[in-house]
């Protein structure tokens, strides 16, 4: 079960993040998770939103460079050692994590949510289910 992530190419210059987030806000799109990977000249803003298709259109209409990637959103217990356990579930099946970041989604107070980009979504899904983990679907992001 995967979730659509938007990746937006952002030049390193003042005002870019402000402009992009304003676009999403004006279109009433809620950001559920985000991270920025940065280099000297540019960054990639990664976003999980409640309505990916709408966000894609809004950003593209404004000339942004956007691409969609399928990622996993994993719910784990909010306690010491639980992330290590989840990583181990992936590691034992030899699945690589390319990047991950924390999500804002927090429907239950004793859990935390992570966005995971792995080298093989299907293998990772099976590995996580087998270890008893819960993956969130697109319509659980609202």
């Amino acid at each position: 079960m995967t979730v659509k992530q938007l990746s937006v190419f952002v030049e390193n210059r003042p005002g870019r993040l402000s402009a992009i987030t304003r676009l999403l806000g004006d279109a009433n799109i809620n950001i559920r998770a985000m991270s920025i990977a940065d280099t000297k000249d540019f960054g990639i803003l990664r976003l999980i939103v409640d309505d990916a298709e709408k966000a894609l259109k809004v950003l593209k209409d404004e000339g942004c460079s956007v691409t969609i990637t399928n990622v996993l959103v994993l719910r784990i217990d909010d306690r010491p050692g639980s992330l290590a356990q989840a990583m181990n579930a992936l590691y034992k099946d030899n699945i690589s994590v390319e990047y991950m970041y924390a999500a804002f989604i927090n429907t239950e107070s004793n859990t935390a949510c992570l966005v995971l980009r792995v080298d093989d979504n299907d293998k990772a899904t099976v590995a996580l289910y087998d270890s008893g983990y819960k993956l969130l679907s697109q319509n659980e992001l609202g």
């Binding site: 190419f9 280099t39 540019f42 990639i44 691409t67 390319e98």
Partner: peptide
């Protein structure tokens, strides 16, 4: 465009 820096670099 890609979601990973490495691909773009």
């Amino acid at each position: 465009l890609s979601d990973t820096i490495k691909t773009i670099e």
